[in-house]
C-alpha cells in the first residue's frame, strides 16, 4: 500500500482498494455539458478489466475527451454510475492519472520543466508538504526516461510542442497510477517524439497498467490495444477486431 499523506487531498480513498474490482465499470452512463440539452453520450455500458489497453476512437466532438473527463472527475454525470477501481469517481485520486490535451495547459506560466514534472508527485504529498529528495530523484528519473533531463531547468514555454507532450507523459508517469487516462497523447507531434512516447506507453502496458486512450490515431503499433471502442452519434460501440 502506498503511504497516505498526512493532509491528503479531497476524498482520497486513503489507500483502501478493492483489488479484484475491474478498472472501470460504466452503468447506463449519460454525459453532457451544463446548459446543453442534448447529451454528448448516453446509454454507455462498459466494463474494462485491469491491465487492459483500450482505445476510444471517433471524430472530433464525438465524446472521447468527455468520457475521459468524466472518469477523471472533471465532469459530473448526468445519469448512471461509473466505478473506478472499485470506488466512486474522484475517490481514488492517487490511482488515476490523467494526461490532458496539450492545449489545456497554461504553457506561459513561469515554471521550470523540473518543477512541472514534480507536480505529478503532489498527490502523494497532500497539503502543506513540499517535494523532498525522494520526489526529486523520481522526477529526474522520469525526465531521463522521456529524454528531457538536459532541459530540466528550462521554462516550460521554451520547449517545442513535442517536448511539451513528453513532459506531460513524464508527469503522468510520476503520478504512479494503476489507471491512466490519456487524451490524444500523440496530438500534433513529430515522428521522433511519437516513437519515444509509444515506447513508454508500451512499457506501461507491459507493467500491467490499465490504459484508456482517446485518439483518432491508430499508429500505436500492433497489439497495443486489447479493444477498440467507437464513439459517434452519442453512442459507444465496440469495434469488431480487425
Amino acid at each position: 500500500m502506498l503511504p497516505v499523506p498526512l493532509f491528503r487531498y479531497h476524498a482520497t480513498c486513503g489507500g483502501h482498494h478493492t483489488h479484484d474490482a475491474p478498472a472501470l465499470v460504466f452503468t447506463n452512463v449519460e454525459l453532457g455539458y451544463a446548459g446543453a440539452d442534448t447529451p454528448v453520450l448516453s446509454g454507455v455500458n462498459l466494463s474494462i478489466d485491469r491491465g487492459r489497453s483500450i482505445a476510444l476512437l471517433g471524430e472530433n466532438g464525438a465524446g472521447k475527451s468527455t468520457l475521459l473527463k468524466s472518469v477523471a472527475g472533471l465532469l459530473p454525470l448526468r445519469d448512471g454510475k461509473i466505478s473506478v477501481l472499485g470506488h466512486g469517481v474522484g475517490q481514488c485520486h492517487h490511482q488515476v492519472a490523467y494526461l490532458p490535451q496539450h492545449r489545456d495547459i497554461d504553457w506561459g506560466f513561469p515554471m521550470s520543466v523540473r518543477r512541472f514534472v514534480l507536480t505529478g508527485s503532489y498527490i502523494h504529498l497532500g497539503w502543506f508538504k513540499r517535494p523532498g529528495k525522494k520526489e526529486r530523484v523520481a522526477a529526474n528519473a522520469m525526465l531521463e526516461k522521456l529524454q528531457l533531463a538536459s532541459l530540466a531547468d528550462r521554462r516550460i514555454n521554451e520547449l517545442s510542442g513535442g517536448q511539451q507532450q513528453r513532459l506531460l507523459v513524464a508527469r503522468t508517469l510520476l503520478h504512479g497510477a494503476d489507471l491512466l487516462l490519456l487524451d490524444e497523447p500523440f496530438n500534433a507531434i513529430d515522428t521522433e517524439n511519437r516513437e519515444l512516447i509509444r515506447t513508454v506507453l508500451h512499457a506501461l502496458k507491459a507493467e500491467g497498467k490499465t490504459l484508456v486512450t482517446a485518439t483518432h490515431d491508430l499508429e500505436f503499433g500492433v497489439g497495443f490495444f486489447d479493444a477498440r471502442y467507437c464513439l459517434g452519434d452519442g453512442q459507444l460501440s465496440k469495434e469488431a477486431p480487425a
Binding site: 491528503r8 487531498y9 479531497h10 476524498a11 482520497t12 473527463k69 477523471a72 472527475g73 472533471l74 474522484g90 485520486h93 492517487h94 488515476v96 492519472a97 490523467y98 490532458p100 489545456d104 495547459i105 497554461d106 506560466f109 515554471m111 518543477r115 512541472f116 507536480t119 503532489y122 498527490i123 504529498l125 497539503w127 502543506f128 513540499r130 517535494p131 516550460i156 508527469r171 503520478h175
Partner: peptide
Amino acid sequence: ALINKELELASVDPEYACVIGAR
C-alpha cells in the same frame, strides 16, 4: 507559503489539480 504548490498547479493546469483533488 503553505499552499503555494497547489496555487501554482491550479494556475498552470487546473484540470490536473482537480483530478488529484486539490480543489
